[in-house]
Design a protein around this nucleic acid. Structure first.
Lengths: 334, 334
DNA sequence: CTGAAAGCGCTTACAG
DNA sequence: CTGAAAGCGCTTACAG
């Protein structure tokens, strides 16, 4: 392994000078710099990242903690994070928690061993004391996608508003018996989507009825299954409905399958609207009407929020950034 | 920041002893260990990862370099890698190359600055000298998914065989005019799938005709588009065909769309078979017949192959591990 | 503009 | 079983 000493020897200067020539910190005569650069090239020298990090107290690395990269909303987020991180010279450690708080804590412990300058996290659950703690220690952290109950730096969308708008659209287009596949109510984002659903109905003078509220709190990896089961359950109870608001696209896909299985047509008999606008949601049959989350942008913005936290170390009040979502009407709604 | 010295002071021992107590390297009296552990807990001490890495020459980190995590075959691979890595106490750096060799080289440069013990890579292109170089330097590296032209440690499937089997199935079920959306022929894996296609036809006494070979070499992020355009192109030339072998599921989805757009039915008029078995390929309409790649397992196996390379440093001949693929027949083929 | 020295936080021979 | 010392590969005041 070639070190800074080897380069120094080859260039006939001291290690200090090599360091300065390479970093640009401090003056170096042009001819000296040249010699150093030549030696670097000749020896294929690459500074030891760990040594640099140890000295400078920075690693130019950020941790991205998400529930599961196989959940199709996260690849876009991850790319947003990585692309932005790269622009700032940072690299990204990927951590999947599988919605498990203990795994999440473990990862945070690990990342905090000084080898990550900051963390971007879509929290696994509503148990978030460890995140509060991190924040109190003034460790740079940004929450994404899944908002938390305390004030933190965050990049999210207005889930309440988005759900409200989606359901209002269904009402406006003539639907009255609107079922919801509600999602895991442990998580604030699903509670808010649920709240948006209820408020939209209420504001339109439509009662919120228990029998149209479907889905469980499980967070199975079979994300379509919850939608499938929920709608099957309605059918088996002979509950009538003319539309479904599914709190994720995957649940919507499951719902559509269940509706088709029972011999009904989407959207002629029952309209379905999803949430997320996954890349393949336009490819299914019928192409899914849904709420678009700017996932890639959320990732990018999170990094843009995190870097100043890392650099300044100035303690400013946390701020929440609300990204715009958009209702996208395709063919699964009439 | 609490260091090993703080712990030593608090526990009334030397830093050396703290280190030994924590690592288990070297004997420590049980009562001493206890004191150390108490101090660690009290101070919430976490060893500085960088200092450890610098001293030990290991970081317990591996780099995963892939074309794009948004390409839906990679999330499963990434999870396989991460889960296995975690089992060995390793963490994963995620790097997307966007199919660009220069980006790939950049990342390798970066990761090689001693802060990654090994690399798992799905190469961006057929230009692979930098990978050969890494291998020659005896740097632990495992190639996945996309096989390369030189002997390297790799975990892949037999793309030729898999394609051969898929096309043979189409022939066996009565198809004679089988089009192919061939994929980027720069990449060995698509060349092999193409070769499998041709050989299957030849072995069945069916001529390989130029006009049924469709698709271009682009690697657009719009992965379905190549399939869509390719099939549209056949229609516009009035070329008849009774089946399509698409070299990826996304191309198959594009192909199905094009077929439907032209008023034909899948599979009644034209059968379509894909390749990859993406999670949502069973959710589209009709559910896609395809070749299943054990993506998660490929990720896991790659780590299992990489770790010994990191540990032993014994120079053994590289070996290629062939994972089993499987033909999955659903409703897009008759 | 350049070099020698100190130090980042660890670990590991080496003594005792 | 334990401590003092050296060293991993850098960077950055401090002199000159």
């Amino acid at each position: 392994m070639v070190t800074i000493k080897d380069v120094a020897k080859k260039a006939g200067v001291s290690p200090s000078t090599v360091s300065r020539a390479l970093s640009g910190n401090g003056p170096v005569k042009e001819s000296t710099r040249k010699k150093v650069l030549d030696a670097v090239k000749l020896l294929d020298y690459r500074p030891n990242f760990l040594a640099q990090g140890l000295k400078e107290g920075k690693t130019k690395t950020i941790g991205l903690i998400i529930p599961n990269i196989r959940n199709p909303i996260y690849p876009a987020v991850a790319r947003g994070v990585e692309d932005a991180a790269k622009k700032f010279g940072y690299t990204v450690i990927l951590c999947n928690t599988d919605e498990d708080v203990d795994t999440e804590k473990e990862y945070i412990q690990k990342l905090q061993k000084r080898w990550v300058d900051g963390i971007i996290i879509a929290p696994a659950s509503n148990e978030n004391e460890h995140i509060v703690k991190l924040q109190n220690e003034n460790f740079p952290i940004v929450v994404i996608v899944r908002n938390v109950d305390f004030l933190s730096n965050a990049v999210i969308i207005d889930n309440y508003r988005a759900a409200y708008d989606a359901v209002s659209y269904l009402i406006r287009t003539g639907h009255r018996r609107i079922a919801i596949v509600k999602g895991n109510q442990q998580l604030a984002l699903y509670r808010e989507r649920f709240r948006g659903y209820k408020q939209a109905l209420l504001d339109a003078g439509i009662p919120v009825v228990e029998e149209l509220i479907a889905g469980d709190d499980s967070d199975s990896v079979q994300w379509t299954l919850d939608g499938y089961n929920a709608i099957n359950c309605l059918f088996s109870q002979n509950i009538e409905f003319d539309a479904v608001f599914a709190t994720t696209d995957l649940r919507a896909i499951g719902a559509i399958r269940a509706i088709k299985d029972h011999g009904y047509k989407v959207p002629e008999d029952i309209s379905v609207i999803g949430f997320d606008n996954l890349e393949f949601s336009s490819l299914i049959d019928p192409p899914l009407s849904t709420v678009s989350q700017p996932l890639y942008d959320i990732g990018m913005r999170a990094v843009n929020k995190l870097i100043p936290l890392i650099d300044n170390k100035t303690v400013t009040e946390p701020t929440i950034e609300i990204m715009l979502s958009e209702l996208i009407i395709r063919k699964s709604t009439k």
